[in-house]
Nucleic acid binder design. Structure first.
Lengths: 142, 142
DNA sequence: TTGCGTGCAAAGGTTTTGCATGGCA
DNA sequence: TGCCATGCAAAACCTTTGCACGCAA
């Protein structure tokens, strides 16, 4: 269902920028600040619109943390497209993003489909929680 | 870290209302509309403030789905306090929210903790994908 | 009487949308 | 030339906060 995709300066620049940091997450304001600093500014609305397209196309992942705080976007490396899909764990404390390639984890998708009639979308699904460091710290603090 | 807790009309009414629908999701505007219709209105700010307290106390769960759309709140039945949380599947197509109480699904948390040193937070984690109906429809059209 | 709880209104922030202009094809 | 993409500004939205008043203890 991808719409037309003109090759504009902004479109190309945005994708190139995201490609330089696969797996890293950035916010819309991060992106706008970057291009503004480069002397090649891109409008906020345009960034939102292009990003939404990329998410639909599966090229970019979108993560929603808290309401009020901006959403995070992340470029998905090419090898992950359509083949090696990975899940993500996001630490609520330090924001660290952990990639999962474990087969056991992927089985959850199978379980959901067969037992719950639900087709899981790994691109959109994020496991939230605490990473080892932050969990240990929370443990100490009580 | 719970603060003082006066027994006010609003506080009691809100908790009573939530208790009538354990496991169901409501938004802040849902709540306000309900009490306004009852002729016993409660201010929006108050609802937010009391809800935040209840979340801290573990009496209520808060789910953040999409930015822009309101957060969902859910009363946690007494027997569930302290661990018995459920997972959620959100259909990207029709927006339907499905509750999961399956033990197999919950095992994913165990796996993540033991094999990936990640402490899963079920209250924040939402599985995105397609429900049975929408998946079937996508199949036909695709 | 003390101090928290309440509610209104306004602020704060992110995201979306309307509309005229500019650029790709 | 036709039409989509862009960008500015304003709107829409949820949520938080400031402040005066009311009510529980």
């Amino acid at each position: 269902m991808e719409k037309t995709n003109y090759k504009t300066r902004q479109n190309t620049a945005l994708l190139d920028y995201l490609r330089t940091m696969p797996g890293k997450h950035v916010t819309v304001s991060d992106i706008c600040r970057h291009f503004a600093a480069c002397g090649d500014p891109i409008g906020t609305a345009t960034v939102y619109r292009r990003l939404e397209q990329m998410v639909d196309a599966g090229v970019v992942n979108k993560y929603v943390l808290d309401p009020g705080s901006p959403a995070c976007f992340e470029y998905v490396p090419a090898q992950a497209h359509g083949g090696e899909v990975c899940y993500h764990c996001k630490c609520e404390q330090c924001g660290r993003l952990i990639h999962l390639h474990c087969e056991e984890v992927r089985e959850i998708g199978e379980h959901l489909r067969t037992h719950h009639a639900f087709t899981l979308d790994p691109r959109r699904t994020v496991f939230y929680g605490l990473c080892a460091d932050c969990a240990a710290q929370a443990e100490r603090e009580g």
